[in-house]
Design a protein around this nucleic acid. Structure first.
Length: 542
DNA sequence: AGCCATGCACCG
DNA sequence: CGGTGCATGGCT
């Protein structure tokens, strides 16, 4: 929530420290990083995210917010939210005018930071989804997004690799933050019991639970290739059902009774509350008692199941015959167990396992064990088997492998960047002509160099380790790391002067320098370096 | 003890 | 005089 200072003319927005450190990219120098944020109208803003040293701590601020705040006609008391759309890490911002019109929310945010901000406290459960509500695409924010973190890991993102998707709401004086995850000492938000249940849902699953608000027509918005359905009112969280087409080609849905676990056929437009039993089956009175037989055979059910365990767009890939395939086969067992566990978790509380390994099986149970023929009977599952069970297990394996590959490529990228540095010793800290890396900050304290691109929002922590510890500055200007920075910078400047005197193109390079060392001015680049060094040293001294 | 809204000194 | 960075003090 904007304070008077935030909304004033200074153009700075003070960020709650915990939010800044938990949800914004890590910064090691006071200059911080430029962040590109898109507002609800699609307009892009670039704010400087930085900090001031304060009482041996930091105060985080967003600078350059005045035009944006004026454009949105925001004032003290209004709420601004920042969210991130994965996997690209695109930042979007939304706002909500002060409480006089609580339902007229504006902006891109789909979910308030439910446990991380003051607004969540004021917000009733039904209002958690502030509008416009996005039902499709992958718009994430805390609560739901944490469960999705493995899927959204993205090495080109400026966010830490082990990070979760983020959302931030700024608070105002007097706003309480009890039960806030952000209040925890640990930067990894603590998962409360209630949330634990929620976190078992995947994002895709969560999407499956959303139903459009009644009597409301959506408008479809496409943001960078992702399609979003926007609704003015909050979506409703309903019971998950399986949509299908029956023999006559009519669209229907299957719903499972919470009490007897039998599946019942319902019209496609039927909306079920989160708790639903046969007795609520007003569409088919014959099957409204739990005692009535289930229409579906276990086999038919198996055919339907993949539609809820896997997004339909993904192709099923058969396991390849390569050195990994042995591992693949071994992993199948483990994955089958995983599948079993997850099936169990997806069942309602009352059907949960009493043993640690597997839920108790009941009539209608669709878990992998119950649909598997008794041991020794029925077809064996060979590697080439394409039955639903094997397909499901293989798909899970593919997911696991692609995550592993992603991690691997992340490491490769870091390695490449490091090699780049080693091969370019004369300019180890700047890549003005490189599309990827345009900015750099150095932390002699953490012994890291951050390369960042304001255009692409990339940041890579290179963890450059000096050869000797004493190469790291210990506060004096002759310190090693800072010396490296300074020397490299001055070499770079000399080179630029030389080349610019040849081609007469000085302006753009100096503009870049002011970005690298924002403390200085274009008039004297070397003093920029000195100022920058001083600034880093100051914090180090503290 | 630590956060943060805001005051205020300094600087160009 | 406005912008910037730090310090102060109220508050949790």
């Amino acid at each position: 929530m904007l304070s008077a200072s935030d909304a004033g003319r200074i153009g700075r927005l003070v960020l709650p420290k915990k939010c800044a450190e938990t949800y914004f990219p890590p910064i090691s120098s006071p200059e911080g990083l430029p962040l590109k944020v898109q507002d609800s109208k699609g307009k892009e803003w670039i704010f400087q995210f930085r900090f001031w040293p304060n009482n041996n701590s930091r105060m985080y601020v967003l600078e350059g917010v005045t035009p944006c705040i004026q454009s949105m006609q925001l004032q003290a008391g209004d709420i601004v939210t920042f969210s991130r759309i994965d996997p690209e890490g695109k930042l979007v911002m939304g706002f909500r005018k002060a409480s006089t019109a609580p339902t007229s929310d504006q902006g891109n945010e789909a979910v308030n930071a439910r446990s991380g901000d003051a607004s969540a406290k004021k917000t009733k459960a039904g209002e958690v989804f502030s509008s416009p509500h996005l039902l499709k695409g992958r718009l994430v924010s805390p609560g739901i997004s944490q469960i999705n973190q493995a899927n959204s890991a993205d090495q080109t993102s400026p966010w830490p690799k082990d990070d979760i998707s983020r959302c931030l709401t700024k608070e105002v004086v007097g706003a309480k933050r009890k039960n806030s995850n952000l209040g925890s000492k640990s930067k990894r938000p603590r998962v409360e019991t209630e949330e634990l249940i929620e976190l078992k849902l995947t994002w895709e699953l969560a999407q499956g639970l959303f139903r459009p608000p009644p009597n409301n027509v959506s408008s479809v918005v496409v943001i960078e290739g992702f399609e979003f359905e926007e609704y003015e009112d909050a979506p409703i969280i309903g019971r998950p059902t399986i949509f299908a087409t029956d023999n006559s080609g009519e669209k229907i849905q299957w719903a499972q009774c919470e009490s007897c676990f039998k599946w019942r056929k319902l019209p496609a437009d039927a909306f079920l509350p989160s708790r639903w039993t046969c007795s609520d089956n007003s569409w088919d009175p014959e099957r409204s008692p739990c005692s009535a037989a289930q229409e579906l055979t276990a086999e038919e059910l198996v055919c339907l199941l993949p539609t809820i365990t896997q997004p339909p767009s993904k192709k099923i890939k058969a396991a390849k015959r390569d050195p990994d395939s042995d591992e693949a086969l071994q992993a199948l067992d483990a994955l089958a167990n995983l599948a079993i566990q997850e099936e169990g978790e997806n069942l309602p509380e009352s059907s949960q396992a009493t043993t640690t390994k597997h839920p108790r099986h009941r009539p209608g149970c669709t878990c992998i064990v119950c649909i598997q023929p008794p041991s020794g009977k029925g077809p064996k599952h060979e590697q080439t088997c394409t039955c639903n069970i094997c397909s499901m297990v293989k798909r899970r394996f593919q997911t696991l492998m692609s995550r592993r590959e992603k991690k691997q490529s992340e490491k490769e990228a870091e390695k490449t960047a490091l090699q780049y540095l080693e091969q370019n010793p004369e300019f180890p800290l700047m890549f003005p002509d490189d599309e990827e890396f345009q900015l750099c900050t150095v932390s002699p304290i953490e012994k890291t160099v951050n390369l960042a691109s304001p255009l692409k929002g990339n940041i890579i922590d290179l963890n450059i380790q000096p050869e000797r510890d004493d190469e790291v500055s210990s506060g004096s200007d002759s310190g090693g790391m800072m010396r490296l920075v300074q020397d490299a910078t001055e070499r770079y400047l000399r080179q630029q002067r030389l080349s610019s005197s040849r081609n007469g193109n000085l302006g753009s390079k100096q503009t870049l320098l002011s970005g690298v060392f924002p403390l200085g001015t274009n008039a004297s680049a070397s003093s920029s370096v000195t100022e920058s060094c001083k600034s880093v040293h100051k914090e180090e001294d503290r």
